[in-house]
Design a protein around this nucleic acid. Structure first.
Lengths: 247, 247
DNA sequence: GAGCCGGTTTGATCCACGTCAAACCCGCTG
DNA sequence: CAGCGGGTTTGACGTGGATCAAACCGGCTC
């Protein structure tokens, strides 16, 4: 049985977490490690955390010393500026990493909040750096993950800089669909874990605009929405909408 | 005298580039290396490239195998999507790294174009990975640089998602000022290397809007502009403008 | 020095999205 | 089952920035 102790308001389990038989392996960690390397990887993960819906995994300003791999659940990250404005910078799901932004200053630069009850693996960053000096493939994998994050952000910048409301929402839905698919869920129907307001914040729109876009998509038969439940009826239609609006 | 050979349309110099006595060291590479480590660093940089104004350092779709440190000059990076829309994702200056986005897929995901005659150090990525398995401080430095890029991108997302035109331009000017300062140039006056259109693309605005915002700032005595030459007259005013517009 | 050309400025008009406000929906609690 | 509250939808209206268009500016070539 795992030991338990309360840290902040969060339950910490000191378990022997085993990457070696985690079925998210191919999402979060590199393939093709030999037996010894796999054992080391298991040691790298120091613990698992359960985070309840609405709780923070970390907050902007806190000292950074670990990154987190999402075992299950759903998160958002957001940044806040003095004058009260804030923006959701991303939504993260199973198999994705959280906390990469903290490396640069050794301080988290955004908040990470669970949008549903979730579980993460805690990967102390010094362990990760140590191990990636030993295991090439791990090193390379990690670099790719960071780079992918940069590319992803460029995509969002593109979205925010050049697309109109409906294109943004279409892009957002298609992106979710694709990520759910990669995790073995239906590409065509899913529950949104976030509110209209959070979607709007992420997409640089007001919640009313998001809501109207949803309604419009429904009218046009592209999707069926019922609150947080979304069914995509016409993927091609959504794609078309994205590319050749205006121009 | 360095050997010369023409590669693409770009001059390549096979010189013994020496990080060890490069005065950008503190900007692009880690401090506190001992003599032997410094020598290895020198070997890591395989060559220097000269890029003339308007030329591409690399293009989206090309195979990635090196990152580039800007020795001198000024670049922009931009992404292009099918339907013809494009967006500038960043402006890079002396001491900054280019090409990090290519690691994830081993293919460059954006274009890098020199906005003035420039010179870069070519750092083959496999060398960098190899060396950072040996030198902890180099490894850690590199991770910080990648992470900083992510944080920077979040800042841009914030800008694009929540700020209005004049706030965006103010943020842009203050950011440039700060980066020039860090490089020993005047914080208050500089030449813009990019056009109004490129600024607009970066800030998610049309060039007319950028131009109007410049004019407005000038009317209000915040800056003096003459084409690409900008003098900041009231830094505090620009900052104030950013924070407490609309509220 | 005339003429051209890319980039910029400025003005007039338009429209997508924001703002404000009311109603609605659904799950909870007493 | 009434009442409440967070989230959502929908409508009416206002506005910041896009669009369209014309003029301007400085550097270039012939």
């Amino acid at each position: 049985m795992p030991q338990r102790s309360a840290t902040n308001k969060v339950m910490l389990e000191v378990v022997k977490t085993a990457c070696s038989n985690c079925n998210l392996r191919e999402l979060c960690m590199p393939l093709g490690l030999d037996h010894r390397e796999m054992e080391k990887l298991d040691e790298m993960v120091s613990a698992r955390h359960r985070i309840r819906r609405g709780e923070h995994l970390y907050r902007a300003g806190q000292r950074f010393d670990a990154i987190y791999a999402i075992r299950s659940g759903f998160f958002k990250t957001d940044v806040l500026i003095e004058d009260g404005r804030d923006q959701v910078t991303g939504f993260q799901m199973t198999g994705e990493l959280l906390g990469l932004d903290g490396i640069s200053t050794e301080t988290h630069s955004c908040n990470a909040v669970a949008l549903e009850d979730s579980e993460v693996c805690v990967i102390p960053f010094s362990h990760l750096e140590g191990l990636s000096r030993e295991i090439r493939t791990l090193q390379h994998h990690f670099h790719k993950v960071m780079s992918r994050e940069i590319v992803r952000d460029h995509g969002v910048m593109m979205l925010l800089g050049t697309m109109r409301a409906e294109e943004r929402l279409a892009a957002f839905l298609l992106n979710l669909s694709q990520r759910f698919t990669a995790r073995g869920y239906s590409p065509a129907e899913f529950y949104l874990r976030m509110t209209r307001d959070e979607i709007g914040s992420y997409l640089g729109l007001k919640l009313e605009t998001v809501s109207r876009a949803f309604s419009r998509f429904q009218e046009e038969g592209l999707i069926a929405v019922q609150q947080k439940y979304v069914r995509i009826l016409d993927t091609a239609g959504l794609k078309k909408l994205m590319s050749h609006q205006r121009g």
